[in-house]
Computed example of a mutant assay.
Amino acid sequence: MTSRLPLAIAATAGTCALALGVTAPALAAGPANTDDKAMVSVFHGVPGLTVDVYANGNELLSDFEPGSVAAPQSLDAGTYDIQVFEAGKGPDGTPAIEKQVEVPAGANATVAAHLSADGKPQLTAFVNDVSNVPAGKARLTVRHVAAAPTVDVRANGQPVFKNLENPKEATSDVGSGTISADVVLAGTDTVAVGPADLNLKEGTSNVVYAWGSADDKNLALKTQTFTGIESPPNPVHAGGNGAALALDSSSQWLAWAAVGAVPLTATGVLAARRVAGRRD
């Protein structure tokens, strides 16, 4: 397969300053997918070239610019031949990148067009974790899709993910709020990208892509955010004095056990009264 992308990238070498594009439209996780469907979005992380994206010969995206995340589309589950062309060159020309991607039924996935660690264009499919996020938390996922060495990812100056290699990812549920994030060369304080403020809202899943090329000095960050996956609140019950009592699973079991004991207690009282009546 012939790739046109390295030529385009070489033409842009040294022309881009360090960029931090860390905002992206929030993507609603939406209702549960049907058994034969999947939600698929595309991230374009190859600098210097606008592209058209095809799936099984059908145009999926046109004039797609670097650093962009496309809104998820509902696709039938199955195997797709993904082809990435320089804008206007498809579908009869030679694709710049091509790969078969398996889309699992019911999954939420992102297909990333990006550079390998040594600067070659490639496609990587990631499955997005859109399960419920614990109360008070946000999910943070970092994906290393840049032509750069192994890195550490820091939040507020402290490493949260270490020794992250291209094209790997790391995920953790963290406290919600705004953090200052940067990417450093593994085991050092040498900053490769950042710092940048990330607003991690409660009940969201936030995917941060570190993309671009270290040699071309155009490394950048891009976020993809999924909403609507907060955990349901704990049940609230009114006490006898009108005060609200939040119950966890164990105390809820005890509460139901107590409720179940009430009829038995009442029966015991009535039986005692009958015995006392007979004695009288």
Rank of each mutant, 00 (worst) to 15 (best):
S3A: 12
S3Y: 05
P6I: 08
L7G: 12
A8T: 14
I9V: 15
T12L: 11
C16T: 13
A17Y: 08
L18C: 06
P25F: 02
T34I: 10
M39E: 12
H44F: 06
G45F: 01
T50I: 13
Y54A: 01
N56F: 06
N56Y: 04
N58G: 09
L60K: 07
E65L: 14
V69K: 02
S74G: 11
D76M: 13
G78V: 09
Q83C: 00
Q83P: 07
Q100K: 14
E102S: 15
P104E: 14
A105N: 11
N108H: 13
N108G: 00
G119F: 11
K120I: 06
T124E: 11
V127P: 01
N128W: 02
V130Y: 01
V133R: 01
G136R: 07
R143L: 14
V145S: 02
A147M: 06
V151E: 09
G157Y: 03
G157E: 02
N163S: 15
N166H: 02
K168H: 15
G177D: 06
I179F: 11
A181N: 01
A181T: 14
A181R: 04
T190E: 15
T190V: 09
V191W: 08
A196G: 14
K201I: 03
Y209N: 09
Y209R: 01
A210Y: 05
S213T: 08
D215G: 06
D215A: 14
G228W: 00
P235N: 03
G239M: 12
G240I: 14
G240D: 15
A243P: 03
L245R: 13
G260H: 00
P263E: 06
L264D: 00
T265R: 10
R279W: 08
R279S: 10
D280S: 14
